[in-house]
């Protein structure tokens, strides 16, 4: 399955069916959303299992079509008590992508049921993306974010608008570690993904200038509206 632009540097072959990809680090979610967005946009469906803190807006901004996202909570009130493994088994049958968190009790142990689940993932050709460690699922690829740097916030002014995340791909399916600095810039209702370039003073200055003008507009608008609301 294809992946969006900056991720093809990390995974040149795209997402391989039957693999388990784990996203870790302080930017894991955004990386996971960006990773699956292209495949979803091309018609795949995604099940989100046991991620109650799923940031719907952030997913939409990174290009995830929400009409093909289904969330499942295995420990919701009134549920019949089937465990995470059963639900995962049913989900990989029907969904091309499954986003999940591995329950804490399966981080170190690897019961037979999980091994069965692993072979089912391979057989059905689904891609499982885990937030945090893949634990018992034994991830094929691990994407770790390092050195997140945010831009846009000052002391009491501005707003978060841009960040650069350094993502490193490793794992048993990747012979050598690859890493790439990915830039995420908020623009309107979308977040644009790009490869962060090396420090280029001229470009930085330009970005800063556009940022300040945009920011000035943004602040005025927000401020007025908020005043009106507060009043």
């Amino acid at each position: 399955m294809p992946v969006a632009h900056p991720f093809d540097r990390l995974l040149p072959d795209g997402l391989m069916r039957g693999q388990v990809v784990s996203c870790r680090g302080s930017g894991a979610r955004s990386v996971a959303f960006g990773l699956v967005s292209t495949a979803l946009a091309e018609g795949a469906w995604m099940a989100v299992i046991d991620v109650p803190t799923f940031g719907t807006d952030a997913a939409a901004e990174l290009g995830v079509p929400l009409e093909r996202v289904v969330r499942v909570e295995t420990n919701a009130v009134g549920s019949s008590g089937s465990g995470w493994v059963d639900v995962m088994g049913a989900a990989v049958d029907g969904f091309d992508l499954v986003l999940t968190r591995v329950p804490a009790e399966l981080h170190d142990r690897r019961p037979a049921a999980v091994r069965k689940l692993n072979s089912r993932v391979r057989q059905k050709g689904a891609v499982v993306v885990t937030l945090g460690t893949a634990g018992a699922l034994g991830g094929d690829i691990e994407l770790t974010t390092q050195r997140t740097s945010w831009a846009g916030l000052e002391d009491g002014a501005g707003h978060l608008e841009r960040r650069v995340v350094e993502v490193q791909a490793s794992g048993r399916r990747i012979p050598e570690r690859r890493s790439c600095a990915i830039e995420m810039v908020g623009a309107g209702t979308r977040v644009a993904l790009g490869v962060a370039t090396e420090r280029d003073p001229q470009a930085e200055l330009l970005a800063e200038m556009t940022a300040t003008t945009e920011k000035a507009d943004g602040v005025v608008v927000t401020d007025l509206n908020d005043r009106r609301l507060a009043g």
Binding site: V70, V72, T74, G78, S79, S82, V87, F95
Partner: peptide
Amino acid sequence: ALRSIARLTTLTSETAVTV
């Protein structure tokens, strides 16, 4: 996916499978 949603609903509960 639609088939799988029905299956997941029977596995958990109606309120657990959401869009």
